[in-house]
Structures are given as structure tokens and as C-alpha cells.
Design a protein around this nucleic acid. Structure first.
Length: 513
RNA sequence: GGCGAAUUAGUGUAGAGGCCUAGCACGCCACCCUCUCAAGGUGGAGACUCGGGUUCGAAUCCCGGACUCGCUACCA
């Protein structure tokens, strides 16, 4: 059967060993885009074959993160499906059966070497590898009699099952991104396929068996798997499944934004950006890691940003919705080299998506931020919040930034920026501001269109300096010399609050000589 | 060490032998706008890892060096 006419079935197969890494999210996204584009199925398989590293809560986290990002799952633990169970720890019988198949066919064997013995070997022999050149000197079913092996196993001795790799062969991996990658089977070791200690297979066996049974057509995963892909090819062959083996696609990795190496949690802490989609509370250490969601990123922005880290649509388009991405995605335009994690650009994407969000919607998102800063949201109408947000949103990257820019609309300044005081709050200014209050107090209409010409004319008639007066005015109302057009501020804030703030400023700011 | 994969401005990338005087975006700088700060507009600095080939012609193809990343577990 040709790859092209096969039903597209892809899987994202994370291990529940902690929060989903942002690199994993991108892998999931590419799988999803490819599946949707081809009208195929997206499978979420939980690979919990490492009982040692299992972390409670990690599986829920994965589900929640993918849901938040809009990466839909067709078949999985929660969704069900025709090829379940979708959690590897619930597939023990299947793996046992398949291990036996390999054993019976002479393509795998029992090994009794303890971890200590293996470590000793590695310490003793440089570049020790469990393979054709060394297996003859180890404790396994190839060097022991059948009876001895049986006694050991019946006696409860722990063992592993290793894959028997034939040396002297060229193993070819066909990768959609990298073409044919050939490696010599000699450099492969006899990988552990199954461990009796927890009655669970290792990744390699479980992965091949499940992908086959779940009829996976394309294995789209990180580049860290490329070195073991030849082993996987050999496993498909050993099972006699080569004809229906999936097409491999090994995606380049996400690297540190600055230095060298792959992106890690520490980079995020160090440089101030999240590396996890959602906030994560480590159940063991009690540590909390920031998430994109909690940091104020919109899921659409994260998806767009991530999609472009290693892929491009072939033209200069950058802002794309999920539907756009599904339509345009192609491995043809996937990069083959690792991408440094450009989180600054991620901010820009969020900025861009925030601009496309309605003021009213943004106002709702802003409310919790206001509350967090001690503002009683009930004191302000939705309309007031919406208009304040509309005035400032062009300068924010995150919803949280709204506080720094629009907070003054909700809380009068408690202090005034020293530098602006020195520059603008000249000794004559308290008197000027007092006079301004008199002028404002008698204005029946505080709309910008009406008030602006009146105040400007007043400044001119008094022979005052426009910049100085306006900035002092601004300093009194905002607390610093920045923000939207002054008369838009006063229009929204209203006469009473404006005058109150100028009075407070006169009272509190000490003019500088 | 072994094996594999990569290598275009600070970053993400376009580029598939002549269309490249190497395009776009983020970031950076300047100017415009302006009561301020942003946003926006305009402009600017900034790159084909290095050698060898192949070719009339190479960022694009081949070989080698360098550097980077990954793997080298009874982890995935």
C-alpha cells in the first residue's frame, strides 16, 4: 500500500513525567495540522512505561494544555476510539504477547545482567555496548542453557528481554524531511524491549507495537528520536510489518534563545518567559512554573508563534489562524535545523492578536488584573473599563500590561514620577494648576472635542508654555508623563475626578527650584 | 570517544544553478506624527561558516574542515 493513499493517522505520545514542554506542544501542533489537513485522525497516547518517573497530574495537564490551545484529539484515553486502550500501562497483555512473538522467532532473548553488572562493564570497558560483540560474554539466554534460563525465570529472578540486532547490515530510515538516512547495524545495541521488574515494555517496543496496532500512518516526532529510528525500522521488520510501517518525520528541536543546547525550563526562569503552556505545580518539590496561559498569552498567538518556529508557509505571511495553518501546513516548508526559541517574537504575536481582540473582550480579561491590584471592579462600569482598555491596548503585549498603562484610570496616582516633577513642576505650576481647576470647574461639557480648544486657548491667553502646562496637567492626573491624548483621558475620567487629582497634586508635589 | 543530523543578518526565516545589488518579520537605530509615552508611517545598520571542486555561472550541486545540536540507560 502506498503511503499517499493510506488514511492519515498520527499520534502525539507524551510521557506523563511532568508538564508538557513547549517543544512537545509544537510537535503536537504539527501532528494536528497534518492530520486535519488530510482529514485524518489525531491520536493522543499516554506513554507511561516508565513507572519510576510517573508524575501525578501530568496526564490531566497534557489534556488541559492541548484543549486550551485548540489542538483537538480524535482518539485517546478520554476520547476513546477503536484501537484502545490509549494508555500504555493498560496494554500490558498486548506487549507481553508481542514480546513472546519476538522471543519465539529468535529475534529477542532474555538477559539477566543486573544494572550493577552492566555499570561495572561500562566502567571497565570504554564504549561498552551490549551487542553482537559482547553478548556472548554476558548472562543471557544465548549463553545459558534452556534449563538454566527456565530455572532463573521460574525462581523469580528479574530479567529483561533484549532485541537481537544482527550486525553487518545497513539500515535505512526514510525520513520525510531528511531523505534516506543510512546507518550500520553494528553501532546499534541490543536494546531492552521489556523489563520484568515492572512488567512493562520500554519505549521502543511499546511504540512500534502501538503504532502498528493503531494503524499510525506518520510518526511525527522530535529529532532526538532520529538515532533510534533504525532500531525501530528493524523492529518493524522483525514483526513482519515493514509493508505498513509508518512514514517517519523527525522535527528539528527548539533551542535556547541565547546560548547553546536545547530549550529548558531554566532558560525560561532566567530570561523571563514560560516554557510550559499552562502553569504547573510540581507535586514533589512544590515549585510553580509559569505557563503561557497564566502569563497572559492568547492560545491563538501561541499556536501561530509556535507554528512558525520551524515551518513557514512559503511566502511572507506570518499572522495565521489555526484554519490558515491547517490549510497551508506542509513538511516541504519545514526547517531541518534547530530553532532558537525567539520568545521576543512570541510577545509580538501576542501583541498582534491582542489588537484583534475587541475592547469589550479585553475589558473582561482585564478585570481580574484590576482586582489583583486592589481595584473594586464594581466601582466602574463595563463601558468605562472598555473605553480605558481601547485607549491603551495598542501599547500592550499582554493583558497584564494594561495595568501599567491604564491603571491610572482606576486608581489615582499615589506618587509622582521624580524626573517629570523636576522637568515640569516648576515653582509657578501650583498656581497655574489652581487656575486650571477654576477653568475646568465651570465647564459643562468635558468631551475632548469641546474641552481641548477651551484649555488650549486659555493656555495661550495666559501666555503659558503649552508643553509645560500640559505635562504638569498630565503628571497630576496620571502620575507620570505618558499615556494617551490628555483630553481623551479627561473625557473618560470626568470632571470631578480630574479636578480631585489636580488638587491632590498641588497638595502633594513639592516644586523643585 | 562513536554515530547521526544540521549550518542565510542578533533572532525566526525566504531562497531548490543565472530573476540575489540576497527578500520578509521580530529586535535595534533615526526621522515623521505629537502636550507626553506608546502605537503607526518612512528610512537605516545588519547575513549566505570556511576550504576545495563541478559549471560559462553556486547561497543553491559534490567533497573536506570547523562549529552547533541530538543520541550513545532496565528515560522517553
Amino acid at each position: 500500500m502506498s503511503q499517499t493513499e493510506r488514511e492519515v493517522r498520527v499520534r502525539f505520545a507524551p510521557s506523563p513525567t511532568g508538564p508538557l514542554h513547549i517543544g512537545g506542544v509544537r510537535t503536537a501542533l504539527y501532528n494536528y495540522l497534518f492530520a486535519r489537513q488530510h482529514g485524518g485522525k489525531m491520536i493522543l497516547r499516554i506513554e507511561d512505561t516508565d513507572s519510576q518517573r510517573f508524575v501525578p497530574g501530568a496526564e490531566d495537564y497534557i489534556n488541559e494544555a492541548l484543549a486550551w490551545l485548540g489542538i483537538g484529539i480524535d482518539e485517546g484515553v478520554r476520547e476513546g476510539g477503536p484501537y484502545g486502550p490509549y494508555k500504555q500501562s493498560e496494554r500490558r497483555d498486548i506487549y507481553r504477547e508481542h514480546v513472546k512473538m519476538l522471543l519465539d522467532a529468535g529475534k529477542a532473548y532474555f538477559a539477566f545482567d543486573t544494572p550493577e553488572e552492566l555499570n561495572a562493564k561500562r566502567a571497565e570497558i570504554p564504549n561498552f555496548q551490549y551487542d553482537a560483540s559482547t553478548r556472548g560474554g554476558m548472562r543471557n539466554s544465548l549463553t545459558m542453557s534452556a534449563e538454566e534460563v527456565k530455572n532463573l525465570i521460574d525462581g523469580g529472578t528479574q530479567y529483561v528481554v533484549r532485541f537481537l540486532v544482527e550486525p553487518g547490515r545497513d539500515v535505512e530510515v526514510d525520513d520525510l524531511l531528511r531523505g534516506k538516512v543510512t546507518i550500520k547495524s553494528d553501532i546499534l545495541d541490543d536494546k531492552v524491549l521489556y523489563k520484568s521488574s515492572d512488567d512493562l515494555p520500554t519505549y521502543h517496543l511499546a511504540n512500534i507495537v502501538d503504532d502498528h496496532l493503531m494503524k499510525v500512518s506518520h510518526v511525527i516526532r522530535g529529532e532526538e528520536w532520529l538515532p533510534s529510528a533504525p532500531l525501530h525500522v528493524l523492529l518493524y521488520e522483525a514483526f513482519g510489518w515493514s509493508d505498513t510501517a509508518p512514514q517517519f518525520v523527525h522535527l528539528p528541536l527548539l533551542l535556547k534563545p541565547d546560548g547553546k543546547g536545547k530549550l529548558s525550563k531554566r532558560d525560561g526562569d532566567r530570561l523571563g518567559f514560560p516554557v510550559f503552556p499552562l502553569e504547573w505545580h510540581d507535586p514533589f518539590s512544590g515549585d510553580t512554573s509559569r505557563g503561557y496561559r497564566e502569563s497572559g498569552y492568547l492560545p491563538e498567538a501561541v499556536v501561530n508563534f509556535l507554528a512558525l518556529l520551524g515551518w513557514n508557509p512559503g511566502d511572507d505571511t506570518e499572522v495565521m489562524s489555526m484554519d490558515d495553518l491547517i490549510r497551508k501546513f506542509s513538511f516541504e516548508h519545514c526547517s531541518r535545523s534547530g530553532a532558537k526559541f525567539a520568545f521576543e517574537k512570541g510577545k509580538w504575536f501576542n501583541h498582534t492578536y491582542l489588537q484583534a481582540t475587541s475592547d469589550a473582550e479585553l475589558a473582561q480579561l482585564f478585570k481580574p488584573v484590576l482586582e489583583a491590584h486592589g481595584v473594586n471592579v464594581g466601582d466602574f462600569s463595563d463601558d468605562y473599563i472598555t473605553r480605558a482598555v481601547g485607549m491603551l491596548k495598542s501599547r500592550i503585549n499582554f493583558v497584564d500590561d494594561l495595568w501599567a498603562h491604564a491603571g491610572f484610570f482606576f486608581k489615582a496616582p499615589e506618587e509622582y514620577e521624580a524626573k517629570s516633577i523636576r522637568k515640569r513642576w516648576t515653582p509657578d505650576m501650583p498656581a497655574n494648576m489652581a487656575a486650571l481647576i477654576e477653568l475646568l470647574a465651570v465647564q459643562p461639557d468635558f468631551s475632548a472635542a469641546v474641552l481641548e480648544p477651551i484649555v488650549l486657548k486659555w493656555i495661550e491667553e495666559k501666555g503659558l508654555h503649552l508643553g509645560n502646562v500640559m505635562n504638569a496637567f498630565r503628571l497630576a492626573v496620571v502620575g507620570e508623563c505618558k499615556g494617551p491624548h490628555m483630553f481623551e483621558i479627561t473625557e473618560l475620567m470626568g470632571k470631578d475626578e480630574t479636578i480631585k487629582r489636580i488638587e491632590a497634586a498641588i497638595e502633594r508635589i513639592q516644586p523643585v527650584e
